[in-house]
Design a binder for these strands. Structure first.
Lengths: 202, 202, 202, 202
DNA sequence: TATTAATCGAGACGGTACGTCATGTCTTTTA
DNA sequence: TAAAAGACATGACGTACCGTCTCGATTAATA
């Protein structure tokens, strides 16, 4: 009667845990390389070199370099481009759109978003993860913001567009301009709000 | 008796001219590979293999694989997504936007456009050439169409948006939806036109 | 009590060491290709293919394909064409010359020597390394053999030729015959010894 | 009834004959490239470029670049290293050996001979043609010279070596020294003659 | 306090694609 | 019809990354 004794399935863990310093070094190295040298220079080897980290350490924790960028994007845009869910006013909505314009035009993390949108065209895995971890949650928050602002009477939105299409109509042009290398001034954000959400009832 | 002066003694070239069959084989091979296997499989070696052409022949005529895609995009969208410059009516504008939605959703050349927009984020050269050879001329035609339609009283456009911003507001959301993997139904095109150009004054 | 001092704390390397199996596979593949298909088929790609090895592995360890051949030559001729330094007799010298004739005529490694002599005419680097790693050490051993044989009275060598010129006179004709596609019978080796070292005073 | 008139069967030639200027340009370009840049730079493309000649012109007249070198070697060494067949004296023989040493050490055509010997190791066709067009005829003349010199009592050659082996013994060491990058002083030629043809009976 | 197991830097490995070069054949135009 | 020009299919060059792997050394929790 072997193995009857209790020492059960799990033996939780021993050994060192994940090295936070290495994690940050990789994230920063990826960010820096993207901004300094462009996406072409963003190879796993280059990140490992720059971060002073072994390649294996990267492959152990990230399934692809897209996922590294996604980590930086999620962390950075939570900090620097929050959706103002708690203040569903017209000003908050307009302010968010302006912040998005600035994010795309100036913030390094904006470049990361563009790079990930690009990479998503080439790799379905990246597309899926970008949607799941970034686009969908953010869209959810944006939708909530807008719904509560409309409910509060801040806007009289155009009737023809549903909530999602409306948000695409507000944010899509900003992203499109950034993707095509055009400038993304804050006025454009304002003008879009005026045209689509009703004349500045602020 | 025109051209009486003697032909000016030029001796331009001898030797064989560019092989049109090879050019087309490359273009089609690139297109097919992109649609069938995705951008990841779109290597110069694979194009050459599929086209039955030597790599050197590709490098002789195209500076990068982006330029190959650009050639197919320019040729295909001249055929399948013409800007109706000669009929500046409300219907023509709405029809063009619907055609753009279909182009992005269904046409293989739509995939090429998305791939090039993506590649442009990674490579400044591709960005520049995409702008020069595709985006700028098309935008020029679109601008002309819209101007003449407004002049003819077909629309009463929103005041806050200039011509370029207006076109970004009309086409940007469609492209953005395609880039994020969302569907691009023709209704969205209609709704955008309604919202931004004034309620269907047709 | 030697080595009382503590081992000097060196930490040479971690990670995987050089793969001996890969090294031998490359050496044998090069050898085989040269013998079976001739020098023209001896490309780095073909060696890699035949050895089941990545090209990069070859470039990691050998600066050129000449160096690969040199490795096989050094190892093979240490085994199959040793200089009999320990028995400085007339018989040993004559036997060595006969062995050289056989080596050039029949041994695959003889073909390697001829190929390297040829390659050395085309590439100064190969010339230098062939001299340093093969010709010079071998010549040194030959010189020692001959000197001790003469000292022991085994020969009364021709006066006009110094040691090096004498060895060139003995071995040069054999190599030259091999290079020009002539046969290299052992008699020629004997006849050279007779003519240059004095009539078989053994 | 056509062609009844005398102009008989053969139609000798029409169109331009072989362009002698192009032939010489190719020969000189090959020679120059070999001396200036080494064998590695001696490609058909480079020869054509340097000679200002189309590649096809080279392929039309020479089966390989070895044949080009062979043409220059045959022409140059007929001029600069003639076998003194008409004066079968000891001095003539010794002079010829000294001239061979100088040819190998200093003459550009000597480099061509070494390059061809090398190329012959890699390519059987070159080997065959080198033998047929250069080595064999020259050896024939050398043999005749030596035979007549011996007949005239100029030498009492070593008995063990037949005529061919004797010539290999005289010339082989000189070529071998040149191939291994050693110097080829004229003394060596003299010493070989002394050792193999009997003590300077001049 | 030893054992044990996971992490880490390093880097070798089999691959694939890169962009360049030379090969030898061919086609077009000029002389 | 020879020659210059040069496009073409082929295939090797040497380099860069890919993602996997193995090596020792290090570092925690477990026993």
């Amino acid at each position: 009667m072997p193995d009857a004794s209790p020492p059960p399935a799990r033996r939780p863990r021993s050994g060192p845990r994940r090295d936070e310093a290495a994690r940050l070094a990789v994230l920063h190295a990826a960010d820096d390389l993207l901004v300094e040298l462009g996406f072409g220079a963003l190879t796993v080897e280059a990140i490992a070199r720059r971060a002073g980290v072994a390649k294996q350490t990267i492959y152990r924790w990230w399934p692809s370099k897209g996922e590294i960028l996604l980590d930086t994007l999620v962390e950075d845009s939570a900090k620097r481009l929050p959706v103002p869910v708690d203040t569903p006013t017209a000003d908050a909505v307009r302010g968010y759109l302006r912040a998005l314009a600035r994010f795309l035009a100036d913030d390094p993390a904006g470049k990361v978003l563009l790079a990930l949108l690009a990479e998503a065209q080439h790799d379905p895995g990246t597309a899926e993860r970008l949607r799941t971890r970034y686009l969908a949650p953010r869209r959810e928050a944006e939708r909530a913001l807008l719904a509560r602002a409309i409910e509060a009477g801040a806007f009289a939105p155009a009737p023809a567009l549903g909530p999602d299409a409306l948000l695409d109509a507000l944010t899509g042009p900003l992203v499109y301009r950034a993707l095509t290398g055009a400038s993304v001034p804050e006025d454009v954000a304002d003008a879009l709000a005026d045209a689509l959400l009703g004349p500045a009832a602020r």
